[in-house]
Amino acid sequence: MIYVDDPSQRIPPGSGAGGSQGLRQHIYRALPEIDRAEAIVTRLRDSMSLGLLREGDRLPSEVEMAESFGVSPTTVREALSALRAKGLVETRRGRSGGTFVVSLPASSVPLMRQRLESMSVVELRDMGDHRAAVSAASIQLAASRAVDSDLHAIERLVEAFDAAEGAHALARADSRIWLEIAVSAQSRRLLIAQLHLQLESSELLWAPLGNPRSKEMVMPYFTHMIEALHRRDRESAVSAAAQRIQDDTFHMIDQKLTLALHEGSKDDTDVR
């Protein structure tokens, strides 16, 4: 289950994490075999949630998407029609036609719940391990490489996170901080790895299920990380980031176990 990133996809220098065209192309990278139409819907929806696709953005043509996702045009059409049904995109005819993002997805509790139920504890733990590895490496490099303007950018994003309200805004603001840390590490590869991880985990982490992740619990870690970055204290920065992510992982596994053990889950029937 290996999918290959195209090395020709470049992020223009200094373009930051948010709006770059090169980074956006990663939204359209090749997919694993299973449930491809659904996977396309998830990828596009998550990209909208993270603010990588914005209202008014035009998606590539069906043929282009089919090629970059590595699926048939029929599968892309199926995915687009699901997104249209959700009211997230709109297809316009004519010369300036195409498929456009028309609204951003609201955090869907049933969807997040379903996603959490479908992931195993092992998968959640492994996702946490991957996040910890990529984030620790990024912040360690950022501690020695970041200049004042990089630190200011991270600080502004942490302030934005502190001011954010609601699962959706918190998820997006949190992701932006981790992406900016990878940007400060001067590593395109770490940035792309972090982007994939954020697309996968961020909405799930902040989903308002049961006992949601609290901003107040997370803020001290960010404060600690920023102080460490200012002191260029690599160990302390890594340790704060690692603890934060370990907390996230415990939180998600706890949510998962609560769902699995206390309520009837619908996907039970495929085993035994």
């Binding site: 504890v121 092992v122 733990r125 492994d126 992982t249 415990f250 596994i253 706890d254 176990l257 053990l261």
Partner: peptide, 8 residues
């Protein structure tokens, strides 16, 4: 069945 003990 508890997050105190993680698989692996």
């Amino acid at each position: 069945t508890t997050a105190r003990f993680l698989p692996g």
